[in-house]
Design a protein around this nucleic acid. Structure first.
Lengths: 112, 112
DNA sequence: GCGGGACATCGATAGACGTCGATAGATGAG
DNA sequence: CTCATCTATCGACGTCTATCGATGTCCCGC
């Protein structure tokens, strides 16, 4: 165990957030606290299929190393999944993570 | 600072996010990209009534100026509302903003 | 095996951020 | 008016972050 960080991330309306849970939840938001990363998620959310890095560089308007940097952060946060296809790296949204995120900010629904 | 740019904040699954919309959405997440601010929102979300600053300092475990700093950021992001009662300042969640936030991260629901 | 293309990592730099102590402004009690 | 209390602002410090150019690594076609 402990494979999963003790406090993964808890809904904001949970009874009481521990320090670990607060930190984990903040880390999730921090991954999205950048315009370019928001745009990346938006691009992946509106695509039916995984997207190649080479197709991200242009719409984002930033250098390739910077794109890799952002992608790495999003993967580390668990929001994106990486898939290698030959020379290319394809990224896609982790729908489970997005569902969890939706649950975190939901103040009315039932606690899961 | 920077009240609300033209594009307030758009759902992540919107067709295409403009630079302004991406920045606005990222700013929303940035407001929550700190463990102490997450905890503040959690404390306010679990309270029926507005909470006094003096009641936040202790559970957060940080100095009072730092608490004010975080509260200011959350108010600037539109997530909190401030109410002055005599010498005390009471803060509460802006439920509309939280609903908008829930809409931003929702990838399945209808676009509003 | 060799060369070329795609992506990640490294090193450096400029800017942003969290934190605190000291201080200022505001409010109510005496 | 004067004082005590609560909150916000200011100034400073250390740390983190985004960004890019240069370089390394992996994979494929020839």
């Amino acid at each position: 165990m402990a494979a999963e960080p003790a406090g993964c991330c808890a809904p904001l309306r949970a009874a009481t957030l521990s320090d670990d849970q607060s930190a984990a939840t903040a880390a999730l938001f921090k991954a999205l606290a950048d315009p370019h990363r928001v745009r990346i998620v938006n691009l992946l959310a509106t695509s039916d299929e995984p997207v190649c890095v080479c197709d991200l560089t242009e719409p984002l308007g930033i250098a390739q190393p910077t794109v890799s940097h952002h992608l790495k952060k999003l993967v580390a946060a668990g929001l994106l999944r990486r898939e290698q296809r030959g020379v290319w790296a394809y990224y896609s949204l982790d729908t489970d993570a997005m569902r969890r995120l939706a649950d975190v900010v939901n103040l009315q629904g039932a606690l899961t």
